[in-house]
Amino acid sequence: MIRRLTAEDHQQLFSFLQQDPSFNLFIIGDIESFGYDADFQDVWGQFDDAGSLIAVLLRYYDSYISYAPGDFDADGFARLIGETARTLTIELSGKEEIARQFEGRLALGTKRTLYFCECRTDEYARQQIGAFSIKKAGLADVDRIVDLRRRIPEFDTRPTARDMLVKGMETNSARTYYIEQDGKMVAAASTTAENSLSAMIVGVCTDPEHRGKGYASAIVAKLVYDLLAEGKMPCLFYDNPDAGRIYHRLGFRDIGLWAMYR
């Protein structure tokens, strides 16, 4: 049986999601931030005959994330997505072995597969912090962050980037640390989907004129150190082997693959 979840299901849902807190950080973060009654968010659950939760599907605006540790009703979830989607091409993401089950069932966007990793130790991060003055951004710095990202050729800075940064800071579900030189922001890294258990590190970038100085590594190390001190598991995606080697030196370890259809 699949049905929409409410606040009455919260305890059972979170016990279920905590089986895999890193891969479920987006679902956990969205529910902790926006609950079950927001008009832009829906949460559905599939239950077995004994009433145990076996799969979850979340809609956040026009994007969907699913999670199931075993077999689940992909046809049923696909029907729900088809009934609620407001776009012709479906945006969907999740653990690769789960997300790929929607291929052929929905008109999905272009697939991108990324390595998913987490960091359980600050042993290596502690060696990196302290070399530079790293600052935490506030609302007054949002335009500077967007401007830095737009100077990075590899970055696809969406029109909604500014609003998302503001919302993240206002809800304490995101933060950005940065380094500046002569009053100019030259490197930064952010979190997103911060929740009580984990956080995703995103937007790691350095101005092309200031690369090779260790700025980005130091900022990520500072994020790792602070997040772990707060009891939150730092996670991140990468698909560039060079970036992967840098993250591995900071203590990150690959735990699987993440698929995104956009």
Rank of each mutant, 00 (worst) to 15 (best):
S217E: 09
R262V: 09
S15G: 11
C235G: 02
K232D: 03
L108F: 08
I129G: 05
I152R: 02
I134S: 04
D30A: 12
K213Y: 09
Q128H: 15
G251L: 15
E230Q: 13
I81M: 08
E170I: 14
E123C: 13
M1C: 01
M260Q: 11
F252W: 07
V220R: 07
S52G: 08
E194S: 10
E230L: 06
F77N: 02
Y61A: 13
R105D: 02
G82S: 13
Q128A: 15
E230F: 00
E32N: 09
K136Y: 05
A50C: 06
Y115T: 05
V186A: 03
L165I: 15
I134V: 14
G104W: 09
G214S: 13
D62T: 07
K232I: 02
A174I: 04
D163Y: 05
I28Y: 01
R112I: 13
R3M: 07
F116Q: 07
E180I: 13
R3D: 03
A243G: 02
L17S: 08
E123F: 12
R79F: 11
T160E: 15
K95A: 05
F116N: 01
K95N: 03
S196D: 04
V56C: 03
T87S: 13
I28F: 00
R253G: 07
Q127E: 15
E118S: 08
Y61R: 13
T191C: 08
R126F: 12
R175I: 14
R86P: 09
V202M: 10
T110H: 15
S33M: 10
G70I: 04
S66E: 00
R249D: 10
Q46T: 03
S173W: 13
E230I: 01
L57F: 01
W44H: 05
A229Q: 11
E103C: 04
L58T: 07
W44V: 00
F132V: 07
L197C: 10
A199P: 12
M169I: 15
E83V: 03
R262C: 04
T113Q: 09
R86C: 06
G138F: 14
L228T: 02
R151A: 06
D48P: 02
G109V: 06
I81D: 01
Q46P: 05
K222Q: 06
A68D: 03
D75R: 15
R249M: 04
G256F: 08
M164P: 00
I219Y: 02
I246L: 14
Y247L: 01
E91S: 13
R59W: 02
S63G: 11
M233L: 14
E32W: 10
K135L: 14
E96A: 08
K222W: 00
A189I: 01
L223G: 04
F23P: 03
D242L: 10
Y261T: 00
L80W: 07
D156F: 04
E123S: 11
S52H: 12
F47G: 10
D71H: 11
R112E: 14
F23M: 04
W258D: 13
D147G: 08
S93E: 09
G82F: 09
